[in-house]
């Protein structure tokens, strides 16, 4: 059973009232920050629509034949489109195959649903081959596109979908939900996850919380010349998800906030004092420049297969130099 998170009740009711009224758009675009549960929502909604005996509150029963097939991932009317394993893009052949299945009549006589996650990872050829189907699918077809970066979709895709927004829940809702999942430090985690509860839960389950301190220490040592940027880059590039770089960005953002006096709005509330100390070593321009640089490289690393070692070396050298230049 897929959960509906408490902060999605409104969107859930909205979509189901459209289904009941027979006014459901054939293209839905679910947008919102990472870690708020958009993908789970899409799956839960698809299941509730295809379930043969939905419960009174319109959730999937989890027991009928359709539900069993969906749990096994073999329901012929529920198609999932994701980037192939070890690839970052959804390619044209996958989309063509999807469109080919969608022109058939449905297996069970109801809706045919395709869920595309993450929609922004369709490359341009793939996205273009979806346009015709997305604009005018056969009857009872529902395409659900899920993305945290709607701006990266082409305008032609966006204009063919009805957008459904999933903002981060309120801090209260978020920390309530986190405390139900036995998470301590809910407040800090939510802050670090920009308010996205699922992301916060993820952070709690991995070693990021403790490693964060190491990464900041390493940055400080680097600046004081106790660490070699090349060696540190080697170490950091072994992290598959590029977490050190992500957190370096987060620190930089908080330092910028600190230098402009917005102490309340920083994310790394537990590192406040240390960040303040480092921030004083750099000028605001340098911080902005470094942050831009980090973000740009993060994006590059996610979208293409750049040499991570070189990429990190460059950033770390910039970091260690920036302060020095000022002193000189």
């Amino acid at each position: 059973m897929n959960p509906i998170y408490p902060w999605q009740a409104e969107q859930w009711a909205q979509l189901h009232s459209r289904v009941d009224a027979g006014r459901l758009a054939h293209g839905l675009l679910l947008t919102g920050p990472a870690g708020v549960g958009k993908r789970d929502f899409a799956n839960a909604f698809a299941r509730s629509v295809l379930c043969r005996q939905p419960t009174v509150d319109q959730k999937a029963c989890g027991r009928c034949e359709a539900c069993l097939l969906m749990q096994a991932g073999t329901h012929p009317d529920l198609l999932n489109l994701n980037p192939p394993e070890d690839k970052t893009q959804i390619v044209i052949d996958q989309v063509r195959e999807l469109c080919r299945s969608l022109v058939m009549k449905s297996h069970a006589g109801g809706y045919k649903i395709a869920i595309i996650v993450p929609a922004d990872q369709m490359n341009s050829a793939a996205a273009n081959s979806l346009l015709k189907t997305l604009e005018e699918p056969t009857d009872n077809t529902l395409l659900i596109l899920v993305t945290e970066r709607p701006a990266r979709l082409s305008a032609t895709i966006r204009s063919r979908c009805q957008q459904l927004r999933f903002p981060s829940p309120s801090t209260e809702q978020g920390s309530d939900w986190l405390s139900q999942h036995d998470v301590s430090d809910a407040a800090l985690l939510l802050r670090l996850a920009d308010g996205a509860p699922l992301l916060a839960l993820c952070l709690a389950q991995e070693d990021t919380l403790t490693r964060r301190h190491d990464w900041l220490n390493e940055l400080m040592k680097l600046r004081s010349g106790q660490l070699d940027p090349v060696r540190l880059a080697t170490e950091w590039s072994s992290d598959a998800l590029m977490r050190p770089l992500y957190w370096m960005g987060s620190y930089l953002m908080d330092m910028i906030r600190l230098t402009s006096g917005q102490v309340e709005s920083i994310n790394n509330i537990d590192l406040n004092d240390r960040l303040q100390v480092i921030a004083d070593l750099y000028s605001p321009q340098e911080l902005h420049y470094l942050l831009d640089h980090v973000w740009q490289n993060m994006r590059q690393a996610q979208q293409s297969s750049v040499n991570r070692q070189l990429l990190l070396e460059e950033i770390l050298i910039e970091w260690s130099r920036a302060g020095l230049r000022r002193r000189a």
């Binding site: 069993l68 073999t74 329901h75 006589g109």
Partner: peptide, 13 residues
């Protein structure tokens, strides 16, 4: 693999 994972077509309508 369990038979319940296998999608079969029901009686036609």
């Amino acid at each position: 693999l369990p038979a319940s994972d296998f999608p079969v077509i029901d009686e036609l309508k």
